[in-house]
Measured scan of single mutants.
Amino acid sequence: EPLWIRPDAPSRCTWQLGRPASESPHHHTAPAKSPKILPDILKKIGDTPMVRINKIGKKFGLKCELLAKCEFFNAGGSVKDRISLRMIEDAERDGTLKPGDTIIEPTSGNTGIGLALAAAVRGYRCIIVMPEKMSSEKVDVLRALGAEIVRTPTNARFDSPESHVGVAWRLKNEIPNSHILDQYRNASNPLAHYDTTADEILQQCDGKLDMLVASVGTGGTITGIARKLKEKCPGCRIIGVDPEGSILAEPEELNQTEQTTYEVEGIGYDFIPTVLDRTVVDKWFKSNDEEAFTFARMLIAQEGLLCGGSAGSTVAVAVKAAQELQEGQRCVVILPDSVRNYMTKFLSDRWMLQKGFLKEEDLTEKKPWWWHLRVQELGLSAPLTVLPTITCGHTIEILREKGFDQAPVVDEAGVILGMVTLGNMLSSLLAGKVQPSDQVGKVIYKQFKQIRLTDTLGRLSHILEMDHFALVVHEQIQYHSTGKSSQRQMVFGVVTAIDLLNFVAAQERDQK
């Protein structure tokens, strides 16, 4: 057995438009009618409502009807409940999964919650491996369901041993009777949507819809739904939504950006999952974080739909894509998950301010006199920076000697690579993860907040409520011999709460 199987392995699926269902090699399930009293909570997966979006479509000038398939009504709160249950049931049916076995899954959280929910009911041990950027709410729900959680670096490539995929496979090879159901490759993922989600949409719309818009992560949702719609409703256009920084969209030119990270969760990847059939997507749109969270908040405030950030991405694209539809036509959007997962993220004004998705003037509360002053007023001194090749031991000596707790790590040209902190280095040394002679590049981390000289002290204040420091950066445009230009970030300084307090105190003292 291989040590790991690539999540982007070539698909062996034989589905073709027009091929009889009787030739399918898979076990198919028909939607079942729910009894009045459910035998367990797993029976509350599927049969989610279709809700008309009344205000947002009109606000953006849509002539067509805009409908939302509300997947956050599933038992675990997301569309991923469907595939989690289906993968477990299919693994039980073919004898792969037996009582007492362990389920391991690399996930952005929602599939993990679905699997942990099913594992709690069915009696399996469950280990979820997820990147650090995923919300604390997801972690809390997983723990409450009895799952064990392993976190991995957000910026690790999918084929790196440190990625959530790599760590999951390492655990599988170490733990007896453990299984990775593997949402990236498992046919049960798109089949769950082909058999149930798509049929529900067709039934709820009486077979009449002209466009379907869905955000894409593993691709199982859009693949399964689109294949069924292509068979039953061939005139329906399928629109895929991919965040900026991901590479799922086609044509490839759409993916060209210097951005590699994004805040919206559960969609987009740096590889093409095996289950994603991009041939059934008629057109791709890219979405960005700001519009995703703005539209998610709009869905909550104006439509009462308590959905997550990827739902915002989907609707932001839908109001663009559906401009081509006329009166009497219908566009369906998939709202994948609930706001429950993001209470401390985009639902929080403070978080939105820190990330730059909300401006101070958007909030009406009274601010102190210094709130709208610029960061450049602080008069920061030149920063202490270190090269990635310097040793951890030497870096600790320098920081202690100069009285700093942290320093930016830059390359020879001064471009920011990340940050090192005294606390992080000492804990890594004590844990045996690094040696004093190791290069400081081994303990770089990139989960820090950046701020510009033109940003306000109010925004800085919000950042420092949650973080010990902020890195002050400025952009530099560099022209190359080819005539092309590129933008790079340079370090201007490091600012802490002490710097802000000293500035405010000094100004008030001078005024007296």
Rank of each mutant, 00 (worst) to 15 (best):
T260Y: 10
I477F: 13
E265W: 02
L358R: 07
K345P: 06
F293R: 05
L430C: 09
G328D: 12
V315F: 09
L464V: 13
D467I: 02
R509F: 13
M298W: 09
S348V: 08
K366V: 13
H372N: 11
Q259P: 14
W351V: 02
V472Y: 02
P243Y: 06
T294P: 06
Q326T: 10
R452P: 02
A497V: 12
S287I: 06
T364W: 15
E291H: 02
A413V: 12
R374C: 12
A413Q: 13
Y445C: 09
I300P: 02
E475T: 02
L347R: 02
E360S: 13
V434I: 14
M343S: 02
G304F: 02
I247T: 10
H474S: 10
I477A: 13
S427K: 07
I398Y: 13
K433R: 10
T389H: 14
W369F: 09
L500N: 08
F295N: 02
E327Y: 02
E303F: 04
L471A: 06
Y479M: 14
D270K: 07
T257A: 10
L347G: 02
K449Y: 13
V440R: 02
S246A: 15
F295V: 13
Y262S: 02
K367G: 12
M466L: 11
V491T: 02
V317G: 15
M419K: 12
G423F: 11
A249F: 06
S461K: 02
L353W: 07
F492D: 10
T454W: 14
V494I: 15
I267F: 02
I398P: 06
K345A: 02
H372S: 11
E401M: 07
L501G: 05
L347W: 06
L248P: 02
A322W: 02
V410R: 13
F295G: 08
R400P: 13
M352R: 05
L430P: 15
C392N: 06
L373Q: 02
T385D: 06
T274L: 07
I239R: 05
T456P: 15
V264G: 02
D499V: 02
E397F: 11
F503R: 14
T482Y: 10
Q478N: 13
R374Y: 02
W371L: 08
V241I: 07
A497P: 02
T279N: 10
K446R: 13
V415L: 12
K320V: 06
N424R: 15
R509S: 09
S246C: 07
E508G: 14
T260S: 11
K355R: 11
I390D: 04
T274G: 02
T496I: 11
I444E: 09
K433T: 10
G266C: 07
P383I: 10
T454I: 08
E327I: 02
K433G: 08
L254N: 08
G268S: 02
T257P: 05
L457G: 05
P408T: 06
T385Y: 02
V472L: 14
E263Y: 11
Q329A: 12
R297S: 07
A470V: 13
R340I: 02
D289C: 05
D499C: 12
V339W: 12
F469E: 13
M352N: 02
H474Y: 13
Q447W: 10
M343Y: 02
L422E: 15
E258L: 10
Q489W: 10
F469C: 12
G266Y: 04
E265L: 02
T482I: 09
D411M: 09
I477S: 08
V264S: 02
L378H: 08
M425W: 09
A497K: 09
L306Q: 02
Y479H: 02
A407D: 02
L429V: 11
W371T: 15
E465S: 11
R350W: 09
M490T: 02
R374I: 13
L276T: 12
Y262P: 06
E401A: 15
Q323N: 05
P383L: 12
E263F: 07
V375T: 07
M419P: 11
V420G: 13
P368R: 15
Q450C: 14
E365C: 11
I267P: 08
Y269H: 08
Q489Y: 11
R488G: 13
S428P: 14
T294A: 14
A407Y: 11
D467N: 11
E303A: 11
T261G: 02
L426S: 14
D270V: 04
S427M: 02
A301C: 15
E290I: 02
S313P: 11
Y342N: 06
G240R: 02
T389D: 13
L378T: 02
V495A: 14
V275P: 02
V473G: 11
Y445G: 02
L430M: 09
T454Y: 15
A321T: 09
I300S: 06
A431S: 02
N341E: 04
P383G: 02
E365Y: 09
T314G: 12
H474T: 15
E253I: 12
C307V: 02
V241G: 11
K446W: 12
T389S: 09
V495W: 10
N341I: 02
E250R: 02
Y479W: 02
A249E: 07
E303H: 11
R400L: 10
L254H: 09
D411P: 12
K433P: 02
L460D: 05
Y269S: 06
G328R: 13
Q478Y: 15
H462G: 12
V280N: 06
G240S: 02
F448L: 11
R488D: 05
G240N: 04
I463Y: 12
Y262G: 05
V415W: 12
E465V: 15
V443E: 15
D349A: 02
G393H: 15
F271M: 06
S485P: 12
S313V: 08
T385M: 15
E397T: 15
E401W: 06
I498L: 12
H462S: 08
V275H: 02
F448N: 15
G483D: 14
R400Y: 14
N341P: 05
R400V: 09
V386K: 09
P368F: 08
R488E: 14
R340W: 05
Q302K: 02
S481E: 15
T314V: 14
K359N: 13
S313M: 02
Q406W: 02
E361A: 06
M419T: 12
S461F: 12
R459H: 14
F285N: 08
P383R: 07
G414C: 11
S246L: 04
Q435C: 14
M490D: 15
I444Q: 11
Q435L: 12
T364F: 11
D455C: 14
S348R: 10
T364R: 08
E244M: 02
E327G: 13
S313D: 02
I398H: 02
F469S: 11
G432F: 10
G418F: 09
T389I: 14
A413T: 13
L373F: 10
V415I: 14
V473W: 07
D467R: 07
R340A: 02
G309V: 02
Q329C: 12
D349F: 02
K345I: 02
S313Y: 02
H462R: 06
V333T: 14
K484P: 14
T314M: 06
L471F: 12
Y479N: 11
H462I: 14
Y262I: 02
G423D: 05
G403A: 08
I444L: 10
Q376L: 13
R297W: 06
G493H: 07
F346H: 02
L306E: 02
L430W: 09
Q256A: 09
G423I: 02
F448S: 11
A301I: 10
Q439I: 07
I390P: 06
Q259Y: 02
E508M: 02
P251R: 14
I238G: 07
K442I: 13
K433V: 10
I390G: 13
A407H: 04
N255A: 07
I390V: 10
K286D: 02
C331L: 10
Q439H: 14
W284F: 04
V415C: 13
V443I: 11
R509T: 14
Q478R: 13
N341S: 06
L460I: 08
V375E: 05
V281W: 02
K484L: 13
L363W: 15
L353I: 14
T344L: 04
A505L: 02
I239T: 08
T257N: 14
V264R: 02
G308S: 02
